[in-house]
């Protein structure tokens, strides 16, 4: 398996690099595998939180509509205020946090990318460079949801790491090439395989 470092060194030394599957702009090849900076990660997180927010609003709307089936308005009865028909704001915020945690956990443990990560071309990896496990993803998601200010450490850190990254030894890297596992990716050309052609 070719690591990003090997891949970049191969690129720098002028060795042939093979691309299979993902097509990347040539000027983006240089920083693939680098730890991502503050803006990209904040935008990605913002996209995720916005999605969760829309989901929570959708849940409120569904709750409100269902309430009319459960408790229909009939002539003569006093009008129930809408605030009585939907869950309280506190519960919705808790629900939102839970949804965010579950969403991040599932995304990071399976593909390493949330929708925001996908848009910004980011991927979350563990200290070995592999995918974070479910437990690790759950802990990281909980940490990120409850302590989002930790992301600010990316600005100060000498290695673009947030507080969560430092504590849990994870990294968020630029990885624009979205690949299906086992099908292609970035590879250094094998000189032997070329000579056999």
């Amino acid at each position: 398996m070719t690591s990003f470092r090997e891949y970049r060194e191969a690129m720098a030394s002028g060795q042939a690099v093979e691309y299979q599957g993902p097509l990347l702009p040539s000027d983006a090849l240089a920083f693939q595998g680098d730890r991502a900076g503050f803006v990209s990660r904040t935008v990605a997180a913002g996209i995720d939180v916005a999605l969760i927010f829309i989901l929570v609003l959708g849940t409120v709307a569904v709750f409100w509509m269902i309430s009319f089936i459960v408790d229909p308005m009939s002539p003569g009865t006093p009008v129930t205020p809408s605030s009585d028909r939907v869950p309280s704001v506190g519960i919705m915020i808790l629900y939102g946090y839970f949804l965010n945690w579950a969403y991040w956990t599932a995304c990071w443990a399976t593909t390493g990318r949330t929708v925001g990560n996908l848009v910004m071309g980011l991927r979350v990896i563990n200290y070995k460079g592999g995918r974070v496990r479910w437990v690790g993803a759950a802990v990281r998601a909980a940490f990120c949801t409850t302590f989002p200010i930790g992301l600010l450490w990316v600005i100060i850190s000498g290695a673009n790491r947030s507080v969560q990254d430092v504590v849990l030894r994870t990294s968020v890297i630029y990885d624009w090439a979205v690949t299906i596992p086992g099908f292609g990716g970035l590879k250094i050309a094998d000189p032997d395989s070329r000579s056999h052609e």
Partner: peptide
């Protein structure tokens, strides 16, 4: 900007241990 404000001279160590998904 952050490096300039904090007077950091060294380059950021952005080399992650990751490898391309393949």
């Amino acid at each position: 900007l952050a490096d300039r404000i904090t007077f950091r001279r060294r380059e950021r160590k952005l080399d992650a241990p990751g490898e391309p998904l393949a």
